[in-house]
Write a protein that binds this DNA or RNA. Structure first.
Lengths: 355, 355
DNA sequence: TTGTATGCGTTATCAT
DNA sequence: ATGATAACGCATACAA
């Protein structure tokens, strides 16, 4: 099966040759068997010191780079984990992925990312391709996933974690916080300030349990006080500054009386938009009304008058996700559900209700 | 070589069994050979329609998921490309990665990301691990890389592109713009407004050609007009709002006379910081001085009084990088160097120099 | 069009 | 401690 004339060339893609130096070459140069070379490189403890050095030297001089595919096939380990996030365009998720990557890197794992565009269906597809690609663990955002996603993972015994949401009643592993409770806390805070007329600029709740829980949390607390969040005072719109701005305008425009005195936003971007539009409309914040955000992104503390928001430890969740997954993979004990701390950060955008 | 009693169990990591359904199982169920099953799944055109359907049905009922490692080993194709960026914490890079991922997804490739933390040494390490992991192409940010990085890639014939920088004299493939020229243009604009006293808040120039080129561009244009950018008027600091704010304070603080009338920032985050600090210091922008940014991030158009900045098509660069790499990999013709358009966006933060 | 046989580079199992 | 050798699951050149 030898091509006439010698070695077969690898030119599968018409590109110049990839490094043909394989483990057996290293072994040959070192004058040992491939098995020993493999051991010397991967489990140095299992060979003599002289052996180890000899093989390492040979590998170095040859510029040997192991083939991950072959290694994965033989060992059934890819040392790769996947993350499926709504989008990296939201800095909040980007930060989480950064935290995940940093930790994984330290643990010797690579990270492959895919985006779902906030759609459960696409999330499922992306997950499938990641699984095909042999990831050993997966991180998701939120807990609202297609049932078949869980089936796929559980069938194959692939560890996974949801982040951003913590729900004791959810049977799946997760690292996050209770969005409902956090939103409730925010609402309580505003009620304590004397606000009674509320509006909410929420994220799109479909396929997004965080957005839904935040809206529900606000509704719940208000209802408990006998305050109904009328539908005309709730706008669902994508997370974004422009969207927040438009929503705020719609909410407050042409309604001199009965205006809300507190506008709760589903995330900081929307809140920034609300803040900007309020300024454009000549509405004093927090004098005429209070505006709050969610996530505590970098700008929150800087934008005048400072955005009252809920701090979320995004990078930490990513890091914890990395630890959780790697521990699972490597057979160490893990806690299936971890709750992270969120913290209400009061800044200038909120204040006592105008009387 | 059959373990007594039957099938061997895969329990390499102590986890529950991964899907034992392999291509040969599908083939068996369909009553064909593995080769045909492979063809039916991967190159449907090469088998009869009946065959195709039969195999697909079998694969579906068995829940077959191909093993990427085996496939990669046999085909010498991983259908994975890598990206090494300074950090995803900078939304600008996150957006680029998002553009890359979206396009790759459409092209049937997966993306593995790694971060360099703005350090060339780490970038090299990360690249090496990505290469070991079998990526077929690589995207980088900037053109200042370790020489051995290029050697590694060229030795193995792995396609790569740099983004964010365009330098005709650089012999490597790239998609980006001329940071020097862009910074020059910004400076020209300010000169045209009558400014003569300049300061710059630059990014850390070490290992960062973009930051260095932007600073150099400003210096060059000013020098051509006989204006020297004194060192006390230049601060190198990490990209960030707080850093920009601090730098601005240092630059403008305790110097009532001879103050710069134009502060050019290396990126938008720094410019936001400058803007906020100016407000805090009671300095009117653009009345007392002009402030400019770079990148045109989402907030630029919203933050009062609007940030004059250089628009950079981040997502587009990511998308073009995807196209470039995939075309290389699949043997299609490519243009090694692509220049993208940047555009000066004039907003409220800049205006005529105070007399 | 379909089947057969081999090889991909590494790890792991068994001897020695 | 080291060596021989069989998987690992799939793709592909070649034969039919």
């Amino acid at each position: 099966m030898e091509t006439a004339g010698g070695r077969k060339r690898f030119r599968g893609t018409g590109l110049s040759g990839e490094s043909p130096v394989k483990l057996s070459d290293v072994a040959a140069l070192a004058g040992v068997s491939a098995a020993t070379a493999s051991r010397a490189l991967n489990t140095p403890g299992k060979v003599s010191d002289a052996m180890r050095d000899k093989v390492r030297a040979a590998a170095a001089t040859l510029g040997y780079v192991p083939d991950a595919a072959a290694r994965a096939l033989a060992s059934r380990r890819s040392r790769t984990i996947g993350a499926v996030v709504p989008t990296l365009d939201n800095p909040i998720f980007a930060a989480g992925v950064q935290g995940l990557e940093t930790r994984l890197e330290a643990l010797g794992y690579a990270l492959v990312v895919a985006s779902s565009d906030y759609r459960a269906e696409k999330e499922l597809r992306q997950t499938t391709t990641l699984v095909e690609r042999g990831v050993e663990g997966l991180m998701f955002v939120g807990i609202a996933h297609r049932p078949s996603l869980y089936r796929l993972l559980e069938t194959r015994g692939i560890p996974y974690v949801s982040t951003w949401s913590f729900d004791p009643s959810d049977p799946h592993p997760g690292i996050g916080f209770d969005n409902f409770e956090a939103a409730s806390r925010m609402t309580d805070y505003l009620l304590g300030l004397g606000h009674r007329r509320f509006a909410m600029i929420a994220g799109i709740t479909r396929d997004n349990d965080r957005a839904a829980a935040r809206l529900a949390g606000v509704r719940h607390v208000l209802a408990a006080r006998g305050i109904v969040l009328e539908s005309r005072n709730v706008i669902e719109t994508p997370y974004g500054v422009t969207e927040g701005r438009d929503a705020f305008h719609t909410l407050l425009g042409g309604r001199p009386d009965g205006r809300p005195t507190a506008v709760i936003c589903g995330n900081d971007l929307q809140a920034f938009g609300a803040l900007f539009e309020a300024a454009a409309m000549g509405l004093d914040v927090p004098g005429a009304l209070s505006i709050t955000g969610f996530d505590d992104s970098v700008m929150s503390g800087h934008i005048p008058p400072g955005l009252t928001t809920m701090h979320v430890p995004t990078a930490e969740m990513g890091q914890l996700a990395a630890d959780y997954l790697v521990n699972c993979i490597e057979g160490r004990p893990v806690r299936a559900k971890t709750r992270v701390e969120v913290r209400l950060v009061v800044r200038g955008s909120s204040g006592p209700a105008p009387r």
